[in-house]
Simulated scan of single mutants.
Amino acid sequence: MPEEHNVRKLDARSLRGLAHPLRMELLNALRRNGPATASMLAERLGESSGATSYHLRQLAAHGFVEDAPEHGKGRERWWRAVDSGIAMDENLYQSPDPAVRGAADLLLHELVNQHTRELSSWLSTRDRWFPRWTDHSMDLSDFTLRLTPERSRELIGKVHELLNSYQAHEAAEDDPDAEQVRLHTHVFPIATDPEELR
Rank of each mutant, 00 (worst) to 15 (best):
H20G: 11
L22T: 13
L22K: 13
R23Q: 06
M24S: 10
M24Y: 00
E25Y: 02
L26Y: 07
L27H: 11
L27F: 14
N28I: 01
A29I: 09
L30M: 05
N33F: 14
N33Y: 14
G34T: 08
G34A: 08
P35W: 05
T37R: 03
A38Q: 10
L41R: 07
E43Q: 15
E43Y: 11
E47K: 14
E47I: 06
S49K: 11
S49C: 08
T52R: 12
S53A: 13
Y54P: 00
H55V: 03
Q58R: 12
Q58P: 07
L59F: 11
L59C: 03
A60N: 11
A61E: 15
G63F: 04
F64E: 01
F64L: 00
F64S: 02
V65E: 02
D67F: 04
A68W: 01
A68C: 01
A68L: 01
P69C: 00
P69E: 05
E70N: 04
G72Q: 05
W79S: 04
R80E: 00
V82G: 05
D83K: 00
S84H: 07
G85W: 04
I86C: 03
E90H: 07
N91E: 12
L92I: 05
L92V: 05
Y93T: 08
S95V: 11
D97Y: 03
D97P: 05
A99F: 00
R101K: 05
R101D: 09
A104M: 10
A104R: 02
A104Y: 00
D105L: 10
D105G: 09
L107F: 12
L108V: 15
H109M: 12
E110T: 15
L111K: 00
N113A: 14
N113I: 09
H115T: 04
R117M: 14
S120C: 03
S121K: 12
W122V: 13
W122D: 08
L123I: 15
W129Y: 15
F130W: 08
P131Y: 06
T134H: 02
T134R: 03
H136Q: 13
D139M: 06
L140P: 08
D142M: 08
F143I: 08
F143T: 03
